[in-house]
Design a protein around this nucleic acid. Structure first.
Lengths: 147, 147
DNA sequence: GTAATACCTAAACCTGACTTTAGGTCAAGG
DNA sequence: CCTTGACCTAAAGTCAGGTTTAGGTATTAC
C-alpha cells in the first residue's frame, strides 16, 4: 500500500496545497487517513481526485461532488444513484459541447468578418450585405450561432 | 431605426433586467443612447449582446469584453486587434472542447463501470481487473481521460 | 387626481471556489 | 540546541459576476 503526502499529491496534480486542504474540508475525501495529524493520500484518494476534476469540468458544484464521494463510502446500495449522476453529467456535457459549437460558429464568422474588413479597409460593405448575399458557408456560421 | 426598452431586450435574451444594467455599468454598451433617462437599445446593442454572450461562452471576462466593445467604437484602426481577439478565443474554445472530450470519456467509462457493478452486485471484480483485461474500448475511455 | 407600470441610481449584499494569514507542531540536519 | 522544511488549523480575505434593496421619476389607465 503506497501513500502520499499532501505536497506530493499537489505536485502530481499541479494543484496548490491549499486547494487540497479545501477539498478535504469540504468533505471530498471522506475516508482520508491521517498519521500524526498529517494527511495520508492513498490510491483511493488519487482516483477520487481524478473524478473530482472530471465532475468539476462537467460543471458540478463542490457540494454535489461531496455527495457523490459520500455515496462511494456508502457502498453498493448507492450504485444506482452514482450511475444516474454520471448519466446526468454526460447529458450536461453534451449540451455544453453543442453550445460551444455555436460559439465556435460565431467566432469563425467574426474572424471572416474582420479579415474582410481589413482587406476592404472598412466594415461598411459587409454590414450592408448582412441579409443574404454573403458567401453561403459564412452566412451559415452566423445563422448557426443563433439557435 | 427601431429601438427597444431594457425590458424588451431582457425578454428577447431571457436575461434579468439587472444583468443588462450591470453590463451597461461595466461599459459593455459604450454608445447606448438614452431618452429621458431611459436606455434605448438599438440594433447595434442587440448585435453587441449576441457577441457578448459568445465571448462570455468562450471564457472571456467582462473587463476584456469591455475592451473589445471600446475597440468597436474606436473605428477601423482597431480591426487587427479585434480580429486577433476572435482568433485567440477560437483557440481557447478549441482547447476547451478537447478538455470536454476527455471529460466525456471518463464519464462514459464511469457509466459503464456502474452498469457493470450493478449487474455484478459489486464493483470488486471491475476494480481488480483495472490494469488491462477490460474491454479494449472501455479501457481506452479511461486512458483517454488522462492526457 | 391617483394608482399601477416601467423605468432609474447608488450601494449593499450574495455565492462559489479558492487563497492568504497568523500562529502552531514535529522531525531531521548541522 | 536550534533552525529549516513540511505539515497543521481556524478564520479572514479575495474575486467575478451578478442580484437585491431602498428610494425616486415619468407615463399611462382609470
Amino acid at each position: 500500500m503506497c501513500s502520499y503526502s499532501i505536497g506530493q499529491v499537489a505536485e502530481m496534480f499541479g494543484l496548490p496545497i491549499s486547494t487540497l486542504r479545501y477539498y478535504d474540508k469540504e468533505g471530498l475525501f471522506p475516508e482520508l487517513a491521517r498519521s500524526a495529524g498529517r494527511r495520508q493520500f492513498s490510491d483511493r484518494e488519487i482516483e477520487a481526485l481524478r473524478v473530482i476534476e472530471c465532475l468539476k469540468a462537467s460543471g458540478l458544484e463542490i457540494k454535489d461532488i461531496k455527495q457523490f464521494m459520500q455515496w462511494c463510502s456508502d457502498g453498493p446500495s448507492t450504485y444506482a444513484a452514482r450511475r444516474q449522476l454520471f448519466e446526468d453529467r454526460r447529458k450536461a456535457v453534451e449540451e455544453e459541447m453543442k453550445q460551444l459549437q455555436k460559439t465556435m460558429d460565431l467566432l469563425n464568422y467574426k474572424c471572416w468578418y474582420y479579415e474582410t474588413a481589413m482587406k476592404d479597409g472598412t466594415e461598411d460593405n459587409i454590414q450592408d450585405m448582412l441579409p443574404d448575399n454573403l458567401p453561403a458557408d459564412i452566412q451559415k456560421l452566423y445563422d448557426n450561432s443563433f439557435r
